[in-house]
Nucleic acid binder design. Structure first.
Lengths: 100, 100
DNA sequence: AAGGTATATCGACTTTTCCCGATATACCTA
DNA sequence: TAGGTATATCGGGAAAAGTCGATATACCTT
């Protein structure tokens, strides 16, 4: 759990938004055909459309969030799905309460 | 409480260290003559020496941390003292737990 | 008022981050 | 295996952050 890496990942408006969207996918994204929000999350294309940035940028942002541990990814067929790693958020909350 | 500003303030190794030093000033800084750690915190010069960066850089870092709300400052004579705003850390911990 | 000390601000340069278009890779289907 | 679709990676230009030295400001002491 690299604190600095996590805070850098959180230091971007779009990335913060993505995290919030992924908290309640059914509220923020249209129904997905090939996979369930609960099990694997939301695919890159949906997130990209909603963010309104290019595919490459959003792909990179998701990768940054994943490397920090805040997101997890699942590849299913030609899609990559991202979902929140709630344990990481809980751990971060505790680190701020007790360590930082 | 501007989340983005807070995370940017936390996205620097030296600034993270400063926050930790200020958690237990008596452990990390020599005795101060003109003010108490508990009441007002630690003066800029002490923090600068410990950080090993220039005076201007450390002054700016402290200002960034203050603007984000994580630190508070008190001017006493020719010294400015900085101390942690523990309420801000508690609030941030809660935001991460429930909002982000 | 003058000189000394502590801090803040300014201007400049370097490094990192943002964000894009282009291209590569992976996988699926006919 | 050829073509289509989804995602990842690469290279680069623009913007922001890191960091410094120099200077300004504030305050204290004599």
């Amino acid at each position: 759990m690299d604190q600095l890496e996590i805070f850098k990942a959180l230091s971007n408006k779009t990335r913060l938004q993505i995290l919030q969207w992924l908290k309640e996918p059914e509220k923020h994204f249209p129904v997905q055909e090939h996979a369930s929000f609960d099990e694997v999350g939301v695919c890159v294309g949906q997130i990209q459309q909603k963010a309104g940035l290019t595919q490459s940028t959003v792909s990179e942002y998701l990768s940054i969030l994943q490397k920090s541990g805040l997101l997890e990814s699942t590849r299913l067929g030609q899609w990559t799905y991202y979902r929140r790693n709630e344990e990481a958020f809980a751990a971060l909350s505790n680190i701020i309460k007790s360590e930082i």
